[in-house]
Design a protein around this nucleic acid. Structure first.
Lengths: 152, 152
DNA sequence: GTTATTGCAAATTGTTTGCAAGTGC
DNA sequence: GCACTTGCAAACAATTTGCAATAAC
């Protein structure tokens, strides 16, 4: 965790940005809640718990900055809020998501899975793929089980 | 086209919604511009050309309704506006998109391409897939050619 | 005649910006 | 000291809502 923070600090410095206390607090929240898909507001409230003086605009600006540096990815799951998702260390590609239509939970898939599809797109559509966004909508394991349960 | 409209009318009636003149005008615009990915504002302006009395809120409400009935899909390509995309006749799945990072153009892919990936997800993640969203970001054929052109 | 639908304007929501004050090297 | 950064409040843009008027069957 500290290692990750150190790494991010370097990335910022490399582009002559500073890791200010506010930015550090924001990154820490993202690291702690790596599994979640927090909105800017969510991040703001969590950061505020430890650094009450921070402003919402600063959080937005920080997330925007991290997004430009490809440290986080901005995602959107159909609702109107942007969510911010930390890239895994060394990940070249954006990871995929499984969104449960029953309970709204979001699971992540790190595996690429799209290599073949991308080759087809490059060849058949003459489109040079740089990145992708893949989200599946469906029913998560947990909700499948509850349905079985409730029909017993 | 008329056939498509007729079909949509039936779908509406099936859920006891009416195909009012405003709704018809909106659907007509979507049919005419099937290839495009229009925002609500875009649709509004186009509908207004032929039916100047329509209100923006009505267009939003109509698009929302069509979206619930799965006649159109609401998409979002990273910017803050929702775009509305008519489903192809009889399409079970949402189609894919190729978004060019150079010129912003959006191309559609009707082919499924994800059958295998979905099987893997169902099996390895125990996730029951209902639908998907797949977007590739990259460089379209046209922009690739212009780069070659400009470095000649 | 009742119920769904509309148009308008006002309200809401998520996000961005201007700017004066503050901070870090 | 100077450029970068912050917090606040105001501005913005996209979308939604309340409501009285209207239209459909």
């Amino acid at each position: 965790m500290e290692h990750r923070l150190e790494q991010i600090k370097k990335q910022l410095h490399a582009q002559s940005y500073k890791l200010t206390p506010q930015r550090e607090a924001t990154v820490r929240v993202l690291l702690e809640r790596e599994e979640d898909h927090l909105s800017a507001e969510d991040v703001y409230l969590l950061v505020k718990e430890k650094s009450p003086e921070i402003g919402l605009a600063t959080v937005y600006r920080t997330l925007e900055l991290l997004s430009e540096l490809k440290i986080v990815d901005k995602v959107n799951f159909g609702d109107s809020v942007s969510r911010y998702d930390l890239r895994k260390e060394g990940a070249e590609h954006f990871h995929h998501h499984l969104v449960c239509v029953e309970c709204g939970s979001v699971e992540e898939i790190e595996e690429d899975l799209l290599e073949e599809v991308e080759q087809i797109v490059e060849k058949d559509w003459c489109f040079q793929v740089k990145d992708h966004r893949l989200t599946f909508h469906g029913v998560c394991q947990h909700c499948q089980e509850s349905v079985v349960e409730s029909t017993k």
